[in-house]
């Protein structure tokens, strides 16, 4: 390899590294932590499971001490599934912590769906209640212009959904960003409350192409065997 070719190769690599670094810095939200793989999420756990579905979803709760005047620092909380079915991200200085509070407990808990269904679709998965209270039980809200980020994962195969918030009387659609690949959607909210993924009904579980992976797997095995035989024969022929 001559010097020019090597120089061009290094330039292409540096350009790629700069682009990848910029992409990680500029738009990390939703960017997968890998470049290619197969994500296999755990089965969805329902608060009210149908036959064949798993039940008893977990809650998440954490106490955050007040570390600065009326602030508890950044908060990242999620339920225990892999990946979590519900997460909450709050930047430092976003909570409206009342003076005198010593700590704030943030909770994410599955909740019964309200009697009012959303008008834009059906609820996919569970409704989750996001809340924050002080050590004395006083509800804590978000400061204006300091939204929190709610992340919800739907049942496997949730291709399209919107994060909606129930305010006690009606559902409100939030600007939603899908996080590709794993049925997960995120939205910013200026208030806590009940949140759910709302979307079209899931497609039927039948798959006309279910036989394809088996045929492909068999082809791979046969091809590998044929290649091994071919190489063995070629080696014998050389000797």
């Amino acid at each position: 390899m001559n010097r020019t070719t090597r120089f061009r190769a290094v330039m292409v690599m540096l350009l790629g590294l700069a682009l990848a670094t910029g992409a990680r810095i500029a738009a990390p939200l939703g960017a997968p932590p890998l470049y290619d793989s197969v994500a296999i999420p755990s089965p969805y756990i329902y608060l009210h499971p149908s036959p064949g579905e798993q039940g008893n979803p977990v809650s998440a709760s954490q106490k955050f001490p007040v570390i600065a005047p009326q602030d508890v620092g950044p908060i990242s909380l999620g339920t225990d599934e892999a990946p979590p079915q519900a997460q909450l991200l709050i930047a430092a200085g976003s909570l409206d912590v009342p003076s005198g509070a010593q700590s704030v407990t943030v909770t994410i808990a599955p909740a019964n769906p309200p009697g009012v269904p959303p008008s834009s679709g059906i609820i996919g998965g569970n409704v989750y209640r996001f809340a924050a209270v002080t050590n004395t039980g006083v509800p804590v809200g978000l400061l204006s212009d300091h939204p929190a980020t709610v992340v919800l994962r739907g049942p496997n195969g949730t291709a399209e959904a919107t994060v909606e918030r129930f305010d006690g009387t009606s559902w409100t659609s939030l600007t939603t960003i899908p996080i590709g690949g794993a049925d997960t959607f995120t939205a910013n909210t200026t208030r806590f409350g009940d949140f759910a993924l709302v979307g079209p009904p899931p497609p039927p579980a039948t798959n006309r192409f279910a036989w394809l992976p088996w045929v492909a797997g068999a082809l791979v095995l046969v091809s590998a065997a044929a290649a091994a035989l071919f190489l063995a024969a070629a080696r014998r022929h050389r000797h």
């Binding site: 790629g16 682009l19 910029g22 939703g30 470049y35």
Partner: peptide, 16 residues
């Protein structure tokens, strides 16, 4: 697989 948000990262990695 991952949506348009992954395109710049994968373009960079592809160049690498």
């Amino acid at each position: 697989l991952y949506g348009w948000r992954a395109l710049p990262l994968d373009l960079g990695v592809g160049l690498w």
